[in-house]
Design a protein around this nucleic acid. Structure first.
Lengths: 151, 151
DNA sequence: TTCGGTGCAAAATCTTTGCATCAAG
DNA sequence: CTTGATGCAAAGATTTTGCACCGAA
């Protein structure tokens, strides 16, 4: 019921080549290089579709736009409070918390969404030299800063 | 630096009387009974303020609007996939996952955001009698349905 | 031919903000 | 007075959708 489309293939390919967590906007601007006429709507539609069939993973932190992760293997993320970047985190299985939750919940627990809040190495550095705020820039936080610094 | 305001007091009072997790919109329509001229902007501003000083807790699930919780004691939430309601979940301390995360992360882990996905008792019931979809209505899911059922 | 996919633009959702005015300290 | 808070409306940011047309099967 999902038929092939060059656009979707391109989106898939773009995502598969990234280790970070692009937003729909980022996917859009990049896929646009190959399909200058592609529309944001199409990108959103495909990202939703790919998420639905489990080819990619959607990350909603409630801070800024959703992000999409090609890596669907079970893993977690750390959101840096300083620069807004999202980093992968390999964590030993913590599905036992589902069991704990199940014991307290009158219904069925099917999974959990979890991410960690913290401060990345680069931002820890900045904390000390307070007065002299200079940032290292990483793939993820650039997007965050672009929005944040408009003001 | 935060001076008293009757509106904020009313918002505070409204939230303190609820066990569920109202959205800004819900707070607005309710506080409006006492302050017919209050604006949504004021509600958002105050919810942000109260969240900032830790008097209330903001819950972002990435599904629908943010919700606000008067209960700031450490606890978790279950999001029902069936009806969209958000329920409290008392869970023994699972802060050990912060330690686990810290071991894998090159930076500082300061906390985590976690919620569970599942199906509430009412919706489990519906699953069996597939053909005859009738819903129990709870405080939380009404808001969800109002939006969902427009289509 | 059929039906899902696309581009485009408009709309929907949710939240934030500028600004003149109001009220707490 | 001084400064934070409010109401209002407009703008933002993000995501979804209607519709006519296109292309894969």
């Amino acid at each position: 019921m999902m038929k092939y489309s060059r656009q979707r293939e391109c989106i898939r390919e773009f995502l598969s080549g990234r280790q970070d967590h692009p937003t729909a906007e980022t996917v859009y601007t990049n896929v646009k290089k190959e399909f200058p006429n592609i529309s944001l709507g199409t990108v959103y539609r495909n990202l939703a579709l790919l998420t639905e069939v489990g080819e990619i993973q959607k990350i909603s932190t409630g801070i800024g736009p959703d992000r999409f992760d090609w890596n669907t293997a079970p893993h977690y993320h750390v959101l840096c409070r300083g620069c807004g970047s999202v980093m992968d985190l390999m964590l030993e299985n913590i599905n036992h918390i589902n069991i704990l939750a199940g014991n307290e919940f009158d219904g069925r627990i099917e999974g959990h969404i979890a991410y960690f809040l913290g401060t990345c190495k680069a931002c820890l550095g900045k904390e000390s030299k307070e007065a002299n705020p200079q940032e290292e820039e990483t793939a993820d936080n650039l997007e965050h800063k672009a929005k944040t610094e408009k003001s």
